[in-house]
């Protein structure tokens, strides 16, 4: 795999940390951390050996908190937050890491429709405003069709990459599931359950 025309293996762990940030599905181990402490951990690649925060770090942290609308929850402990709030905190941490690529593993699982849309819209605005590559995995095909700039459809050997329009025109989504159970409707860009 290449990053800026350099193979990933050639990057030092610390350099990679300032190039790629991640939001994983694994739960945060220390639930007793406050929101601001957790977001501050995103500054790790830039701080000294003790992890002292400089003015630049503090600006990045408060910026990340405001982008994800977390200022009110700043001093809350992680165990007090809902799943949706916690997901926003984790994204804020990745944003504070200030990398050109942000990878997210199923950022919308366990969330209801409203929070799913909210998270995805936030990700879209981060990608456009902060000029970052935001790449995430998802099972929510209908939602990603509406919100993402480009999609990679993983379908065994037959995977396709492109804008939603291109992929729909190619008929990629009809092939995804057995047609007698779910079928794809290109006009409404949605799936229909076959009776």
């Amino acid at each position: 795999m290449l990053l800026k025309e350099q193979p990933l293996e050639r990057y030092k762990a610390s350099d990679l940390a300032s190039a790629i940030s991640m939001v994983l599905t694994e739960p945060v181990a220390a639930k007793n951390m406050t929101v601001v402490e957790l977001v501050a951990l995103g500054r790790h690649p830039y701080t000294n050996w003790m992890g002292t925060l400089t003015a630049v770090d503090r600006t990045a942290i408060s910026n990340a908190l405001s982008v994800l609308e977390l200022e009110e929850l700043k001093q809350k402990k992680c165990y007090e937050l809902s799943d949706g709030q916690l997901q926003r905190v984790l994204i804020a941490r990745a944003l504070a890491q200030d990398t050109m690529v942000m990878l997210l593993d199923e950022p919308t699982t366990h969330l209801d429709l409203y929070h799913k849309v909210k998270i995805l819209k936030l990700l879209k605005s981060i990608a456009h405003k902060a000029n970052k590559a935001v790449l995430f995995t998802s099972h929510e095909i209908e939602m990603t069709l509406q919100l993402c700039d480009k999609l990679l459809v993983l379908n065994g050997q037959d995977s396709a990459f492109g804008t939603p329009q291109e992929l729909i025109a190619q008929g990629q989504f009809e092939k995804l599931f057995p047609a007698d159970t779910v079928s794809f409707d290109p006009t409404s860009r949605g799936f229909r359950i076959e009776k």
């Binding site: 940030s21 181990a29 951990l41 690649p45 050996w49 003790m50 992890g51």
Partner: peptide, 23 residues
């Protein structure tokens, strides 16, 4: 004391610590 930064990163879990550049 030398490893205090890594200890803080480990609070997130090992995979997160790795993504933060911790060896």
């Amino acid at each position: 004391v030398h490893t205090v930064k890594a200890l803080n990163a480990l609070l997130l879990g090992e995979n997160y610590a790795k993504s933060l550049g911790v060896n």
